[in-house]
Write a protein that binds this DNA or RNA. Structure first.
Lengths: 127, 127
DNA sequence: GATATAATTCAACTGTAGTTGAAGCATTGT
DNA sequence: ACAATGCTTCAACTACAGTTGAATTATATC
């Protein structure tokens, strides 16, 4: 099972994109509630099986969902939440959208800009 | 200032869609860091001012960003995070993607389905 | 081996949304 | 009044991604 260790902002953006599709969000929601095979999902969402398959594939490639075949009858496929990655996602979202991160405006532009006086500008190698 | 009181799953999906655009996510990130006027954002993201304006408008309509004009020179526009709504968003995300919500599979389909025996099915008005 | 079932894959279509480049608006300075 | 600044709006273009409907795969049953 692929586990994302340290999610970058890019990874975060990708997850957001994957989850921004309403049907996929519903699928994830149903998976979390314990529903798990293609036919059930399709029934509950009134969606053709190929579409369910497609969206599940996107969720799987994003590492949010795992797949498993029935031991007795391998025609049946069961999907499940990739818990470790969901934990990473949840933590990453909470950190990124934490209101505590909000900084007061630092005007470096416009009438209220805090301009560095010319005689304080030094020419150096620290770029 | 518009404040979202009780976010629905639909509202959540809409926020996800708005944030799924990489440049918008970057803009939100910069706003949280204290950068706030169109020109600054455009400079840091190497993006044309009309695009910044467009994306900010989307963020504003989603209730994630507030706008204010400079008191001294009204040509300058400052954008800021809508803190109350970000708090709602953060809480809603944390709740929705909480791994603790994950339920064990309840097979109602496939070989392992827990079928209700015929003699236990009652005919009533409780639909 | 032939048929049925559960799911996946494929090519073609379509609609949405980000981009482009130009015009427009509000405000300020000369 | 005129030009400049900062930003917004607009119509046309383009690309990506969800949908559609059919074909394909894999497994199981007769």
């Amino acid at each position: 099972m692929m586990v994302i260790e340290q999610p970058t902002t890019q990874q975060l953006a990708h997850w957001l994109k994957v989850l921004a599709e309403p049907r996929r969000l519903q699928i994830l929601n149903l998976l979390m509630a314990g529903v798990q095979c293609n036919c059930e999902l399709g029934e509950q969402l009134a969606l053709a099986p190929n579409l369910i398959s497609h969206h599940l594939s996107v969720l799987r490639k994003a590492g949010l969902v795992e797949v498993e075949r029935d031991a007795a009858d391998a025609r049946w496929v069961y999907y499940a939440i990739n818990r470790p990655n969901l934990e990473v996602l949840n933590t990453a979202f909470a950190a990124f959208f934490d209101p505590g991160r909000i900084q007061a405006r630092q005007p470096s532009c416009g009438p209220q800009a805090t301009v560095v006086p010319d005689d304080l500008i030094t020419v150096g190698c620290d770029s």
